[in-house]
Amino acid sequence: MEEQAGRLADFRARLSGGALTLGQLASRRGEQDPDATGDWVAVRRLERSLIACVLPDRSLVVPAFQLTEAAEPRPELRPLLERLLGAGIDGWTAWTWLTQPSSLLSGEVPERVAVADQERALRASARFAADRDA
């Protein structure tokens, strides 16, 4: 059990390398106030259009893959996030599934498939969510 927890912590540490702190996100959005950015993130999380994850030090990070160049949520990911987060899947699990090859997509990466074939990615997210419920 401790070994599995250690592997999970290592994996999360690798994932968080592709994330932005609220300060970094504020800078990318051209905002001066990280608190205002935190409010923006909170609203996007409630809309299920953005994942944010809490690190062990209780700081919040936003996975960069889900943002456009303008630091807005990628619109093609919203239906997938709505499905995953609506099914009670936590941000870490959603982040992992969206950015890793999935057997539900013949080894393709869900966030990349969503660009070319959103319906296919949405069906896979529904199956993933259902499998997590079973």
Rank of each mutant, 00 (worst) to 15 (best):
E108P: 00
C53I: 11
D90Q: 06
E72S: 10
E82C: 10
P63G: 01
V62E: 02
G107L: 05
R123W: 13
D10Y: 11
L60Q: 13
G23S: 11
R127C: 03
D39Y: 13
F11L: 15
R112T: 06
W92V: 07
A94S: 12
A52S: 15
A52I: 02
G17F: 06
A26G: 04
W92M: 08
E119V: 12
Q24L: 05
L46C: 01
L55Q: 15
A116Y: 10
L104M: 08
W92Y: 14
L77Q: 06
D39S: 11
I89G: 03
L25F: 08
G107A: 09
A87Y: 09
A42I: 00
D57A: 04
A9V: 01
A126D: 06
L84N: 02
L55E: 12
A70C: 01
E69N: 12
E76I: 02
D10W: 14
P79Y: 10
A126E: 15
V109T: 14
A36W: 10
W40A: 10
G18D: 14
E82Q: 15
T99G: 01
A116L: 12
L85S: 08
D133P: 00
L77E: 01
D133H: 13
V109P: 09
V115R: 15
L25P: 05
W40Q: 04
A70E: 14
R45V: 11
Q118R: 15
P79L: 08
L105I: 04
V62I: 04
R29D: 01
A5C: 01
D35Y: 13
L8I: 12
S16F: 05
G30S: 04
G23T: 12
V54L: 13
I89M: 09
R48A: 08
L105A: 05
A134H: 14
R45D: 05
A130S: 09
G6Y: 06
R132K: 13
D10R: 15
L22I: 04
Q24W: 10
R112V: 06
F65G: 01
E72C: 06
W40T: 09
R123A: 13
S27Q: 13
L84W: 06
P63S: 02
Q24P: 06
P79Q: 09
A94F: 08
V113Y: 09
F11W: 15
E2N: 13
A5S: 13
L84R: 06
E76H: 14
R120A: 13
E108V: 00
T96L: 09
C53P: 01
V43R: 15
R45Q: 14
F65I: 02
D90K: 05
T37P: 02
A121Q: 05
P75T: 08
